[in-house]
């Protein structure tokens, strides 16, 4: 007896074959080139992620022009604090050398960020003063040099 293949089946097989091939062809063109280079992701994305401009230049960059302050700072308790912690992002300033491109922090709150009393600060991690008691009415930098806190100004 001759094997009977219902016509629906052959037609459907054809339809599915076309559908699947279309899918595979489309897929071939849509998958990004570097996909799978290192794993299940676009390899070029590693480069994309390394691209963005930096905003923080790093302390070494500042030293090139501000040798004096580096020396000041190195002598005292703030030596471990990098310039940009207080002055904010400096890359733009490093490139331009303009003073308008960099922040100059002021105010008691600014020093207070680190030095205000808080039970959560370990006693030996930072010296704390009570902002409500310690020489109220005056700005910290009127007495302390921010780069060399124990070198008191008159």
């Amino acid at each position: 007896m001759k094997l009977y293949i219902p016509p629906q089946l052959t037609r459907l097989a054809l339809a599915f074959a076309i559908f699947i091939s279309l899918f595979l062809v489309l897929r071939h063109f849509l998958v990004p080139d570097t996909f799978g280079q290192y794993g299940h992701y676009r390899g070029a994305s590693l480069i994309d992620n390394a691209q963005p401009e930096i905003h923080y230049a790093g302390q070494q960059a500042c030293f090139e022009c501000h040798q004096d302050i580096q020396d000041l700072k190195a002598q005292d308790v703030h030596s471990e604090i990098h310039c940009e912690t207080c002055h904010g992002p400096g890359q733009k300033h490093v490139l331009s050398g303009e003073s308008s491109d960099i922040l100059k922090p002021t105010g008691r709150e600014f020093c207070g960020l680190c030095h205000a009393m808080n039970a959560a600060k370990q006693k030996n991690a930072v010296f704390q003063v009570d902002l409500k008691k310690h020489n109220i009415g005056k700005n910290c930098i009127e007495c302390h040099n921010p780069h060399q806190p124990w070198e008191m100004k008159k």
């Binding site: 905003h55 923080y56 790093g58 471990e80 604090i81 990098h82 940009e84 912690t85 680190c114 930072v126």
Partner: peptide, 9 residues
């Protein structure tokens, strides 16, 4: 950046 600016390491 966060490690650059951390004052206490």
């Amino acid at each position: 950046a966060c490690m650059e600016v951390c004052p206490t390491g």
